[in-house]
Design a binder for these strands. Structure first.
Lengths: 134, 134
DNA sequence: TATTTCGTGCAAGCGGGTTGCAAAAAAACT
DNA sequence: AGTTTTTTTGCAACCCGCTTGCACGAAATA
């Protein structure tokens, strides 16, 4: 069995040619992408199908969601198979190229947490200039 | 001159009755709100007028914007007149009541910053249960 | 093979934000 | 005051991104 197929099967997702195409494309780039990005890359596949595929991948922990406030949802590959480990990692969006990176080795939790608030989740997006654009 | 009027004038915004209503409403609650919230509270005022008013307030530093990933833009009163001071403060969204708070005394910058990335801005939204809902 | 379940494409809808335009209101200028 | 100019407001319409209903075809199961 191919590597891609194995990933789907391990996540209890049925294998279809479209799902393989989508997964292959996701794995070929290591950054966050939008539904529109995916649509542009896989022109032959219907938007709604891509949407449902990405939603499925989200649900099964292959992808996670990022919101950098730019109006479009971003999807990002979960590293390894260790689901949940990177729940609170930082993302970085570059002003110049617009790419969004997962900064996996940095925890999003600020040094202090607010008194009286029970924090369960942290979403932290930095913006600035990425190494490629400097 | 009334307090509210003074605030507008200080920010070089012309005083109108709608703007006073909006500002009064904003100041009456100390949490972030959406355009839809405002629309519901000030039923007599047109959505687009509210939108333009909020945009104006944003532009003149009376409000700042928060994105907590829930699909709607949030607006939040800037504390004091010290614009820019709270650029990187943390926000907190409660799972139960949905309210979003400005946590003004905590800096959003994580302990570490990613190597090679020039960070200019940080958006940090925590989610969990607020003191009122515990 | 017959039956059920699942995947896909199409079209349509929805929510939130935004804009063009014309009327009303306010300000500036005789 | 009366006239002209600028702003503000409401209405309608639009845009964009996301999401869903439905019908058909493919795949799994009996």
């Amino acid at each position: 069995m191919e590597k891609l197929e194995r990933i789907l099967v391990e996540h209890k997702i049925r294998v279809t040619s479209i799902r393989l195409m989508v997964l292959k494309h996701i794995m070929a780039q290591n950054r966050a992408f939008t539904l529109a990005d995916m649509e542009a890359s896989l022109e032959t596949v219907e938007r709604s199908t891509l949407f449902r595929t990405l939603t499925l991948f989200l649900l099964h922990g292959i992808l996670h969601e990022v919101d950098n406030g730019c109006g479009s949802k971003l999807y990002c590959l979960c590293a390894g198979n260790e689901q949940g480990v990177f729940l609170n990692h930082v993302h970085f969006t570059c002003y110049r190229c617009g790419r969004t990176y997962c900064i996996k080795d940095i925890d999003a939790m600020p040094a202090l947490t607010p008194k009286g608030f029970a924090v369960e989740e942290v979403s932290c997006v930095m913006k600035g200039i990425c190494p490629d654009c400097q």
